Simulated assay, not measured.
Amino acid sequence: MKFAWLIWSILILGLWGLVYWRKPDFRKEMLQISWVTMFFGLTEPLFVPEYWAPPSLFDLANKTGFDIESLLFSFAIGGLGVVLYRLVYPMSISPMIDSDKLHGRHQLHRIILFLPAAIFTVLLVFTSLNPIYSGVIALFLGAVATLYCRPDLKAKIWIGGLLFTGLYFVYFGSLLLVFPSYVDAYWNLADLTGIKLAGIPMEELMFAFSFGMYWSGLYEHVYWYTLNPKEIANGQSVSI
């Protein structure tokens, strides 16, 4: 189990690479969001060992709290999370027209973008919650706030959360098929709910859903894009 975290980080990075290769239209947004998301891997010392303590390359997590695997993993899920909805429901994006940007709800645009970081920091400093719960709450509330600012993205945000949870369930489940005792060995279960679904800690699925929600609408929200149903052969459109 020593290299499990490294191997599965590389596997999901490989999935990122497959999507990047097969979907040229997604490359710009995948790269832009992935590079930003990668730096969230630097928050790993907040979660080790409070949430988990996996073996890492060069034993970095144990020695410093940081690890290379978290950077690879964060890079990969950032790009996948932002395009997963459009992989399932084909749509193009186009810049939002200037008149729509003047709507009153967009006055909170920048505040809402930084809301998850603010909520996470407050919960981390002023509560005794395990950091994973602070992260889940921050991401979920950030997604809900995004729904206020961008109601046109509601399907992408809610369904994006479900889709990413499904992907993450398969991803994590594959790890447990090879290393069935991995969770019991390296998660701080005494500080968590102890609830598991097919061996996967409930907290992991909560993270997947909240992350999928927030990241699903992130590119369109940050860069002022709207979704457009793609035309199909008979001239009708595909929408959800």
Rank of each mutant, 00 (worst) to 15 (best):
G161P: 11
V170E: 01
D98M: 14
G166Q: 07
H103L: 13
L141F: 04
H106Y: 07
I93L: 01
W187T: 04
L84A: 08
V88Q: 08
I111A: 15
M91R: 13
N130L: 10
F114V: 13
L147S: 02
H103T: 11
V82E: 02
K101C: 07
F126E: 11
F140E: 04
D184P: 05
G78C: 03
V83T: 05
L175A: 08
N130M: 12
A155D: 13
S134H: 04
L141D: 04
L175W: 04
L102S: 14
P151M: 11
Y168K: 05
R86L: 02
M91F: 14
A118Q: 12
L147Y: 00
P180L: 06
I137W: 11
P116I: 00
S128Q: 12
G78V: 01
L167D: 03
S181V: 10
V170K: 02
I119V: 13
C149D: 08
L123G: 13
L115T: 02
F140V: 07
M96A: 12
L176V: 03
L108F: 15
G78T: 04
A185D: 14
D98F: 12
A118K: 13
S92H: 08
R86Q: 14
Y148S: 06
G78Y: 06
F120H: 02
I111P: 07
A155Q: 14
A185Y: 11
S92R: 10
Y89A: 11
Y182G: 00
K154P: 07
L141A: 01
S92Q: 13
L147H: 06
D98I: 12
P95Q: 07
Y186G: 01
Y133R: 10
H106P: 00
G78D: 04
I159F: 05
S99Y: 12
